[in-house]
Design a protein around this nucleic acid. Structure first.
Lengths: 235, 235
DNA sequence: CGGTCCTCGATTATCGATAATCGAGCACGG
DNA sequence: CCGTGCTCGATTATCGATAATCGAGGACCG
């Protein structure tokens, strides 16, 4: 992929475009809510419209963008409501992953998990938020991979967009250090190959930050819409 | 948002094609493993290639088909391994849905759920497997809708393909009646608006049939690969 | 006789152009 | 002034055609 913008050779165009566009979304070059115009992209990369459309549709399936007929594609801006909705889903998935991974995880993976925690610590020292996010996501992805359940991994990956927005947002309320260190109990539980404990730690890890981010909302039975409505991200 | 035009945003070719093709897949006209050739579809419906490709890509995101570059699209044939992998994922999601739905569910929804059970019973009497599947899926979908969590609903819907294959397969080992009647405790728990119970019943409902279909595999901590390997469906 | 290389039909990936649709801005009537 | 309807530029949806790629089958060589 080290060949300039002029010649997108190598793999299928659609996939290359997808990766390029995704990178630009994650880097914030395409801000949330911003439109992505097909004709602009096709001129910029010197390709036709079809692969651009298909790449955008892939990104839509990955939940990074949304589209409406005849109105084009825009980068999804994830509302707080959606973020709140994500917590129970993600908590449940992570628990499944923890339970499944615990008996299967090998020493190599445990070492890699340790590396990711160290990398998060280093990034925290540099106050490099982006790096923390990357290693945080990688830590969890390693657990899901260790669970040896392709479907579970797929489903989790489809939440990437929300997870990213989530962590970015959460950081405002809790420190990076808290996020990083909260991974330690998970690693310990995996080291002990204790499925129930690993599952519980994974679940708590998610629910903990969910509770911090949304105060009492997540666990209450009565909904209180106003608490959430007013925060609608003004761009 | 809904759609500003008053609800008549129908008729995007891609979406129509997607529905048509999906129906044909579900009806078994396209058998699992069978290829779907773009040029054939475009001639058959008198449309161009682009919408066909995009429709197929949508179906891929829904997990009904799979595609490889330059090798086209084929209807996914879901292995027993994948089915086994799905159980813990679905069980976790259904538990979340049950917990969330219990406090929110209204009388109308409870009545609809009752209707679905009745419809399943009627279909069972006619030995109409297809109808049972439809109403079974609809029952669960109603619960997910009642949970009022769009993300959860989306994730669950992305498992449709697996769920269908699952029920079809399970039926070989357990009777239709067992499947149908096992929905009753869920409905009762929802009637009582008991989140913990509803969640538990939803989970058990899934795990029960998972256990039936795959013997002891699902719940054990030690993996015993051979038990599963040898079942590789030759069809 | 077995294996490798090449050709060819079938299919997918991409292109450039056209038709359909949308939203903003402007003229017009009240 | 204010709302209504129309026109127009911008953008998406679809089309028909071309280039790239794949897999099967046959020719060729050892």
């Amino acid at each position: 992929m080290a060949d300039g913008t002029g010649g997108l050779a190598r793999a299928v165009l659609r996939e290359q475009l997808r990766e390029r566009l995704l990178a630009r979304i994650l880097d914030g070059e395409f801000a949330p809510g911003e439109r992505i115009v097909e004709s602009h992209v096709m001129k910029e990369y010197g390709v036709s419209q079809a692969p651009v459309r298909e790449a955008l549709r892939d990104l839509e399936a990955m939940r990074f963008v949304e589209s409406f007929p005849h109105r084009g594609v825009r980068v999804r801006l994830i509302s707080e409501r959606e973020l709140a909705e994500m917590y129970p889903v993600r908590a449940a998935l992570e628990e499944v992953a923890g339970r499944a991974a615990a008996p299967l995880v090998g020493d190599e993976t445990l070492a890699l998990l340790d590396d990711e925690i160290e990398a998060m610590r280093a990034a925290t020292r540099d106050d490099d938020v982006h790096a923390v996010l990357v290693h945080d996501a990688r830590f969890h992805e390693l657990v899901f991979e260790a669970a040896d359940n392709a479907l579970l991994l797929d489903v989790w990956r489809s939440l990437h967009a929300e997870i990213r927005a989530l962590v970015t947002y959460t950081r405002v309320r809790v420190g990076l250090t808290d996020i990083v260190e909260s991974h330690v109990p998970i690693l310990q539980a995996l080291r002990q190959h204790d499925p129930a404990l690993a599952g519980k730690e994974m679940r708590h890890h998610i629910e903990h930050f969910g509770a911090l981010a949304f105060a009492e909302k997540t666990r209450t039975e009565h909904d209180d819409p106003e608490k959430i409505e007013k925060t609608a991200r003004p761009d």
